[in-house]
Amino acid sequence: MADALKESKVYVTLTRLERAGLVSSERKVCALTAAGWQRGVDWLEACAPLL
């Protein structure tokens, strides 16, 4: 599958998102923070005109 992410890249990305305050994690269980949700909403709204 060409779009598959390597596990190592996922954890690097999640660590960066956590440092930015966009996700929180505990025992490799991650959840979006309020800021992370808002960033996702903003991204989707920016993409809406492209759909």
Rank of each mutant, 00 (worst) to 15 (best):
L44M: 11
T33G: 01
L44D: 07
Y11A: 01
V23L: 08
T15M: 06
S24Q: 14
G40Q: 09
V23A: 03
V10Q: 03
K9F: 00
T15K: 10
V10E: 07
T15W: 07
W37H: 13
L32E: 02
K9T: 03
W43D: 02
V29Y: 05
G21S: 11
R27M: 08
E18H: 09
L17M: 10
V10A: 07
L44W: 12
D42N: 13
S25D: 12
V10L: 10
Q38T: 15
W37S: 03
A31V: 12
E45P: 01
E45V: 06
A20Q: 14
C47G: 07
W37T: 06
V41N: 05
V41W: 08
C47K: 15
V10Y: 04
V41M: 06
V41Q: 07
V23G: 01
E18V: 10
L32P: 00
L32A: 10
K28A: 09
T33F: 02
V10M: 07
A31M: 07
A20L: 14
T13D: 05
V23K: 01
G40C: 12
T15V: 06
A34Q: 11
A31L: 07
A31C: 08
S25F: 12
G36Y: 02
E45Y: 10
L22D: 00
W37K: 13
K9N: 05
A20G: 04
Y11P: 00
R27D: 14
A35N: 14
G40F: 05
D42Y: 03
L17C: 03
V12N: 01
G36D: 03
L22H: 04
S24H: 13
L44H: 06
V29N: 12
G40L: 13
S25P: 03
E18W: 07
G40E: 09
C30Y: 11
E45C: 06
Y11W: 09
K28N: 13
C47W: 10
R16D: 14
V12A: 04
T13P: 01
Y11K: 02
R16F: 07
S25N: 15
A35F: 13
W37Y: 14
S25K: 15
W43S: 08
R16W: 08
V10S: 05
L32W: 06
Q38M: 15
A35G: 12
E26F: 14
R39Q: 08
V41P: 00
V12I: 05
V23S: 03
V10C: 03
L14T: 01
Y11D: 00
R39P: 00
G40D: 11
L17F: 05
R39G: 01
